[in-house]
Write a protein that binds this DNA or RNA. Structure first.
Lengths: 138, 138
DNA sequence: CGGGATCCGGCTTGATACTG
DNA sequence: CAGTATCAAGCCGGATCCCG
């Protein structure tokens, strides 16, 4: 079969009506992918790649993120085993976040993609320009 | 500076108040990244990697996607120079989509990440299990 | 067939406030 | 400091209608 890396038609053929919910479950790697590549996911992974840090420090590194979103993102990544959370029951509370070894691997691949994209921005920008021009700016 | 691949604090330091809108613009590669990794983006790129195809054929390959979303995704990818659109003014109209050389490169990196993630699913699943167990299923 | 325009519901996000 | 709870807004995605 020509099923790509991402399961697409696989579940369609198997399931039937799946409103896109079923296939998300059938393809857990997609979930993780989105945790990693999502808005705050990629920024968080990027920030954590510079070294472990605490919650509010992370908020500063990823600035623009709300507490809620950072917390949420962190939990998702922690649940996926990408991020490790170390809470010390001291007072005041101190919690450090860091990438797990798996997280580092993921970060590297992700960054590879991102770097490639960044290196390709001239092409992308050119493409965008001609696209916009062709269609009159819209 | 230790600015990561993804521009995070860079613009913060430079700009100032950016409500996450400014930095999205300051960091066009992030935009493209999300086009590629997004819900339909990754599926579309994956589908197109199997070879060029027409709109409705694509809809079938990526099934679950609505016309609107496919169209939208395709336009975003086309604008970024990831996808090439070839319209033939015949009747009935025939339009073929295919990955550009750049698109193929991007697809390869993306798939590398995805494949790694898929290969790591046992770890991820294990991590998820212990996370869920620890917190009582929530 | 290939798509654009519109309407609309829902999930995602973001402020704000509160707890330990 | 390190979060969670709540609530409203906004964007995303889907269904539908329509045109070329």
């Amino acid at each position: 079969m020509e099923t790509p890396a991402i399961c697409t038609e696989a579940e369609q053929a198997a399931g039937s009506d799946l409103p896109f919910d079923a296939f998300a479950r059938a393809c857990p790697s997609r979930e993780t992918l989105e945790h990693v590549t999502g808005r705050w996911g990629s920024l968080t992974v990027g920030a954590l790649r510079e070294g472990p840090c605490r919650f509010n420090e992370l908020r500063r590194r990823v600035e623009g993120v709300s507490e809620k979103m950072l917390s949420q993102t962190l939990h998702a990544l922690e649940r996926d085993g990408i991020v490790n959370r170390e809470a010390q029951p001291t007072n005041p509370p101190r919690v450090d976040y860091e990438l797990t070894p798996l997280g580092v691997e993921v970060a590297n691949r992700l960054l590879a993609l991102i770097h490639f994209l960044e290196g390709s921005m001239p092409q992308v920008l050119t493409a965008r320009a001609s696209y916009d021009e062709t269609r009159g700016g819209r």
